[in-house]
Design a protein around this nucleic acid. Sequence first.
DNA 1: AATAATGTCAACCGCATTAAA
DNA 2: TTTTAATGCGGTTGACATTAT
Length: 229
Amino acid sequence: MRKPFCEKVGLSRGAWSKQEDQKLIDYINKYGEGSWRTLPQAAGLLRCGKSCRLRWMNYLRPDIKRGNFAEDEEDLIIKLHALLGNRWSLIAGRLPGRTNNEVKNYWNSHLRKKLINEGIDPKNRRLTRNPPLMPGSSASSSYNNSAKNNNDEPITTKPYYVSDNKSDRDQVSDAASGLEEEESSCIPDLNLDLTMRIGIISSSSSLPPPDPKPVPEYSRTSTELLLFR
DNA sequence: AATAATGTCAACCGCATTAAA
DNA sequence: TTTTAATGCGGTTGACATTAT
């Protein structure tokens, strides 16, 4: 097996020390983000650029929101995941201060289980059994009626417009036109008014709204256009 | 109290995409 | 147009913590 780049050139790996964090923060505060390849040496770090970037993006950035996910956030992740599948960066983009890694981890360790406990298969959102009646449980209220599609066919793990072929995926959906209609037929109770939910989250937070990178409109998928509108 | 099993999450890897030369 | 470098993404791993036996 090929050795990882960091290992080959004798760079450190694994958990970051406080000193390393501080060096990275100091450097970026002074010179800004970017040039990740040359940054480690310039900042006096024995890390590869990729590792520095990851550390900064996921943990050191000042706008990162740490701590437990609010119920609103959980709800939104569940809904966005139903819509987008494992496109974590898109999902995280709608959650101010959350990173794709954090959202992904939270989904895998908490939300998947939560859905399972409520009798919902997180892969296809079908009922796996009669869920317990849990008044006030937002996820169950969203999904109790939505576990089956109209044809009683299994809903695939991926959203219907996500192809296995990644290059196809982005052309995928002109879907947008019929997205809400079709999606809601798969997941009837899915609240697609995500913008409104975002508004609620954003306004309850001191953080600024998410600032998606300036991707040219033409390169966005229809779904992205829909979400970023 | 010791050990095994399970859960969590930070970090890594490899690949795809984009930008620059 | 092609090649190369940089960046971003999702899947996976592994160390550590917690819970069960």
